[in-house]
């Protein structure tokens, strides 16, 4: 009895979670006149909403920009987190605790509290309305640092010790000993950081206020005060989520584990 109840509850929950996503793609694939149809299966299928969206905005350009931003953020965050966590795990040094607290502390400072000084600094650096302006402020990911630190603290010390005895420099040890062993962890973290950067809204909205250079902002161009252009709007939203969802189809296990392990974003 309990077993059946469990399955029913999970089934209902799974359905509630997936239905909106299904509806997004179903509506986007209906013929432009049928967008508001409520038949469960979109039929006849049509790509007209997609061609419409591509014709009205530079979707290709926005997807490309978003890919560049997400990849640059993920790689940058990964490198900086690797260095910082290596420092905190491989040495004991004065200020160790302070450094740790500084990383943890960023979670307690909401963006909205620091955004005005950030904005003026971006303006002074000439980074407003640029893709670099979206990437640079987010390059230090406290999540990445703390997650890698935890893994490095469990790193077999004998390996480091042996490499050191060989007279290798800490830089060589990082790339020849630490990185190869951590590769799966780095890959999982990299995917997580890429997804977060892809879905990021706040920084693009702050930096790219006058242009719609990334897909998350581009979706808004089909929303209007007079009403929404539903067909291309659904198509654009579908395209904005598609890369991450495809990545998820392929790497489901790794992605779920990376998120659940990391917990905090």
């Amino acid at each position: 009895m309990r077993r059946i109840a469990g399955h029913v509850v999970l089934g209902a929950l799974g359905l509630a979670c997936v239905l909106p996503i299904y509806w997004l793609y179903a509506a986007s694939l209906r013929r432009p006149g049928d967008v508001h149809d409520q038949s469960p299966l979109p039929w006849p299928l049509s790509l007209a909403n997609y061609t419409d969206a591509f014709a009205k905005t530079d979707i290709t350009g926005m997807l490309l920009n978003t890919t560049v931003i997400a990849a640059a953020s993920a790689v940058g965050q990964l490198l900086i987190a690797l260095f910082a966590s290596y420092a905190m795990a491989a040495w004991r040094f004065r200020g160790h605790r302070v450094a740790h607290l500084l990383f943890v502390g960023t979670w307690l400072v909401p963006f909205q509290v620091t955004m005005l000084p950030n904005y003026t600094l971006l303006a002074r650096l000439g980074l407003l309305e640029t893709l670099a302006g979206v990437v640079v402020p987010t390059l230090c990911s406290a999540l990445g640092v703390l997650l890698l630190r935890e893994h490095l603290l469990n790193f077999p010390k004998e390996l480091l010790e042996a490499a050191r005895m060989d007279g290798r420099s800490s830089w060589t040890i990082l790339w020849t000993v630490v990185v190869p062993v951590l590769r799966p962890v780095l890959a999982a973290l990299g995917i997580l950081l890429f997804i977060n950067a892809w879905n990021e809204y706040f920084w693009p909205a702050l930096v790219l206020q006058r242009s719609n250079a990334v897909i998350q902002l581009g979706i808004r161009s089909f929303m209007g005060t007079e009403g929404n252009d539903w067909g291309p709007l659904m198509a654009t939203a579908g395209l904005a989520s598609l890369p991450v969802l495809l990545l998820y189809l392929v790497l489901q296990r790794q992605i779920v584990n990376a998120f659940v392990r990391s917990g905090l974003k």
């Binding site: 999970l10 929950l13 799974g14 359905l15 979670c17 997936v18 909106p20 996503i21 997004l24 997804i195 892809w198 879905n199 809204y201 998350q216 902002l217 979706i219 808004r220 939203a237 579908g238 904005a240 989520s241 991450v244 969802l245 998820y248 992605i255 779920v256 998120f259």
Partner: peptide, 12 residues
């Protein structure tokens, strides 16, 4: 299934 919404961008 239940995890998928976490990956959908907030704007979407």
């Amino acid at each position: 299934l239940v995890f998928a919404p976490m990956l959908v961008a907030p704007v979407a």
